[in-house]
Design a protein around this nucleic acid. Structure first.
Lengths: 100, 100
DNA sequence: GGTATATTTGCATGGTGACGCAAATGAGCA
DNA sequence: TGCTCATTTGCGTCACCATGCAAATATACC
């Protein structure tokens, strides 16, 4: 549930900026488009996007020469809510067990 | 909303293990107690816990010689759910804007 | 005050990650 | 085929982080 790779993918400010940009854009974007909003050069952006994809945060679809990245927003939202539930449930159960 | 420091605090496997241990335990724990579940030595655990506290994930309360750490579970759950809402809302708005 | 325990902090070190550049790969087009 | 554009990958470098050790700080108890 609490997956280190997931958080690792989001612990870099540039990757956060890319994710935010992609979410705000509301449509699939190419690597070149994304790199315009990021101080790093294209190769670095490509690597960041690949990492976000590996972590299950983005999806990539190849169309011709270009790769279009999108946010897996429903899955992402579900994962975050599941984490919230797990932490609440875990802490509540622990406290309950302690009172027995 | 998407805070890099928050994710940074959770991108280390030992810190995840500490958070999980603390959540499952269901009661405040001392640094020494926590260090027993973690391969790292006490000073490292102390630093990890401090980082989790700085990120707003744990709270620390000093009682005598010892410091008791707890999970800020309601706040943490709220933060995660807010992130989920923000991402969903953001992507939906972007898509809607695109269709206009 | 002196000792013991709990925690934090300074420091050195090894490992990992971000970065830019250049080369390689892939796909469209003349 | 040759050319161009988009993306990825290999590589070297630099910065940051996790770690352990030792010293410092804080608190309790004698």
């Amino acid at each position: 549930m609490l997956d280190a790779r997931f958080f690792k993918a989001l612990c870099d400010p540039n990757r956060i900026a890319l994710l935010r940009r992609l979410a705000e854009c509301g449509r699939p974007c190419t690597v070149t488009e994304m790199s315009e909003c990021c101080p790093a050069c294209v190769s670095v952006v490509s690597r960041h996007l690949a990492m976000l994809k590996e972590a299950g945060i983005l999806t990539a679809e190849k169309r011709g020469k270009e790769v279009y990245y999108s946010v897996r927003s429903p899955d992402l939202a579900t994962r975050l809510r599941d984490m919230a539930d797990a932490i609440e449930g875990c802490c509540r159960d622990g406290a309950a067990k302690r009172q027995e």
